[in-house]
Design a protein around this nucleic acid. Structure first.
Lengths: 269, 269
DNA sequence: CGTCGGGTTGATAACTTTCAAATTTCGTGG
DNA sequence: CCACGAAATTTGAAAGTTATCAACCCGACG
């Protein structure tokens, strides 16, 4: 049920021509990352699972580099990411960019912007993206038919919010190394939740420039920090692959909240 | 109707014994900052106004320095701040603190934590605080009777969220001076919305330590930055009073989004 | 092949913190 | 009303962190 069949997802070419899948899955054959993630919060029945899958009807594809949403754009849609990664960011007057958050497969996109109508940030695909457009009415209908799903979505949304806050804390009070470590751990925890990674590593399509704009650093410094982390035997981030060599060391360095990593079963039976 | 009668709010003693009120108001005689703020988003009828005022029945007082909410605490309540300032913050393992957000009179407190049940941050009063405890059921009832209020509250919540994001951007991509300027402007805009300040200044009970923990700086550096801003003729922050001497200069320096400052009438008639 | 977008490294500059000490302000008890 | 101690502000000097500039390398791709 959870076998991932790589077909058209982003692929990372490694030395020696090994391919690693970063998020594609075949619809219909397996449950989506979205169901999988929600399933981690609330134990879902088959009926609830299929109610979720029905949300994935209006499938759309977005190419790399073309913004899905612009600052100030109205007529927002909400999406569920099926495969690929996107980032939401803001641009300052001097051209500097700050990435606020990434959305990974299984994440909801623009849930709030729909309510608020206008978006105050840009959203850009990092990789080729497949997403299901979700109409507000469909969502509400699903919620009223299967209320436990509403709980699960709310839970997921709260987690996203908590992550933005943790990101803020990182920028304010962690140094470059701690910040980078924290970010890599968090990414890992999120990916693990949707079956795209483990505590030992994951495929990651982010360039050092993207990392820099996320961590509030310069790309050059990100490079140095990654080297230090590598030399310390903590993590390796090379060729699109993050390998965690010393989980405890990293968690320790980053002051990472382990509860993210550790919940195996659903929180709500 | 909007006369503010200072009675028991925080007062700031200035040179020459001038007192400035920072948030007290007499309940019953005037509408609360909360109604006032929501009124800025959605034009409210008298009936809606009084529906709001009814939410203020369970009044509670919190002294300075005693946390209202602890990290990990369950059984959350939601509050509407009537007077005084509070901050929400996180503490890192090494003892460093990052303030995520301030709540000012008229702000909602813990709206989300109620849903999520446990709080992942601490909340502490900066000044003596008066807040109305709001029961979820009362809130929902109010919303169903006066749906436009739900819109307004949602609007306010979205604004709060946007502010956290903007804060994150500041920490990531603005230097100390820009960041400080941005923060002071934002605070001003928020206070103006509830009638506690104008574009020329406001009373502010924050110490330089609090500022430092907000801006991700050291207290010493905050002090220097404030001096620079003062010497540049932009703002003055002394004796609990922020005076904006060159609004355009500040807005320019901070790359501040003026739409915050400029909406005079309600956005939704 | 040549270009182009990453990645890597060194040298230098800019920004921010830390430490230490003096000064001012504030609250409280006499 | 004054005096005292605690807390907050202010300033200087030195150290640490991160950015910027410049150069070079490498693999992918047309």
């Amino acid at each position: 049920m959870l076998v991932l069949t790589p077909i058209y997802g982003l692929r990372v070419r490694l030395r020696h021509r090994i391919f690693i899948d970063t998020g594609a899955f075949v619809l219909g054959e397996v449950h989506s990352p979205f169901s999988r993630k929600l399933g981690a919060f609330v134990a879902l029945s088959d009926q609830e699972m299929s109610a979720l899958d029905r949300l994935h009807s209006r499938r759309r594809i977005f190419p790399v580099g073309v913004d899905m949403v612009h600052q100030g754009q109205t007529d927002q849609a909400a999406y569920i990411l099926a495969s690929g990664w996107v980032c939401s960011y803001k641009i300052l007057a001097d051209g500097a960019r700050q990435i606020v958050d990434f959305q990974l497969p299984g994440d909801f996109l623009g849930l709030r912007s729909v309510l608020f109508r206008t978006s105050d940030h840009n959203i850009e695909p990092i990789t080729k993206v497949e997403a299901s457009e979700v109409l507000v009415c469909d969502l509400l209908e699903t919620f009223s038919e299967t209320p436990r799903l509403a709980t699960a979505v709310l839970w997921a949304a709260s987690r996203d919010e908590a992550m933005v806050v943790e990101h803020l804390v990182s920028l304010g009070r962690r140094n470059a190394k701690e910040r980078t470590a924290h970010f890599l751990l968090e990414l890992g925890a999120r990916l693990k939740l949707v079956g795209l990674g483990s505590t030992s590593g994951y495929a990651c399509p982010l360039s050092q420039y993207l990392l820099a704009d996320t961590l509030g650093l310069s790309a050059v410094h990100v490079n140095r920090v990654l080297r230090e982390l590598r030399e310390d035997g903590l993590v390796t981030f090379q060729n699109g692959l993050v390998e965690i060599h010393d989980l405890n060391g990293l968690v320790d360095l980053a002051d990472f909240d382990k509860t993210y990593l550790d919940h195996e079963g659903p929180l709500l039976k």
